[in-house]
Design a protein around this nucleic acid. Sequence first.
DNA 1: TAGAGGATTGAT
DNA 2: TCAATCCTCTAC
Length: 194
Amino acid sequence: MMPESFYQRNQVVKIACELIGKILLTRVDGITTGGMIVETEAYSFRERGCHAYQNNMTPRNEVMFEAGGVAYVYLCYGIHHLFNIVTNQQGTAEAVLIRALEPVIGMEHMQVRMKVLSTNRITSGPGKLTKALGIDRTFNGKYLAGDDVWVDDYETIASKQLIACPRIGIDYAGEDAKLPWRFYLKDNTWVSKK
DNA sequence: TAGAGGATTGAT
DNA sequence: TCAATCCTCTAC
C-alpha cells in the first residue's frame, strides 16, 4: 500500500511516471481484481486539458482539489467511467489518469464483467479497465488506502522502458495538448491503441 | 432551463 | 467513419 506522502508531492508528472509498474486493485462484492499499471496521463490545473483548468471548481471535479491519495472517477461520453488518482496538497487540483493495466489478479472475474470469453486486451483502455475492475462513480472520493481500491508496489521499471508522448483525446486543449504527459511501458501489449 | 459536447469504445 | 448515451457546464 502506498503512503499518502507518495501522492501528496507537488510533482504530478513524476507521479504519473512512478505509477507505471505498480499494481491497482479493487475489491467489489468480495471479489478482488487488479492489474499492473502500464499507461498513465498527468493532468494539472495549470493546463487546458484538465477539468480543473484555472482552478475552476465544479460539482464534478471537486475531489481533484482534495489532498492526494483519493480516487477521481467520472462518466465520459455518457458511457465510460474513467479512473484518476488525485495528487498534490489540498486545494491544488492535479491528478493522474490510469489508461491501461496488464491483468494480474482475477482475470476470470474481469471476463464476466466485460461479457467476453477472450482475455485479449481486456483492460487496454481507460473505459475498459474501470469496467473490468468494477469501478464506477461510487468510487469517486474514495481513499486509495481503503478496502475497496488500493495501489501497491509490483515491478520496478527502468527509466529507459518508459515512453513519454502527448496525451490522447484532448485536441481542444490547444498548445497544452502537445505536452508529453502520457506515459507507457515500452513494448507492452496491454497499452491502449493509439 | 435548453443545448452542446466530452480525458472512449467497438462496430461498420 | 460513426453511433451509443447521459451527465456536466455554459449561456440565456
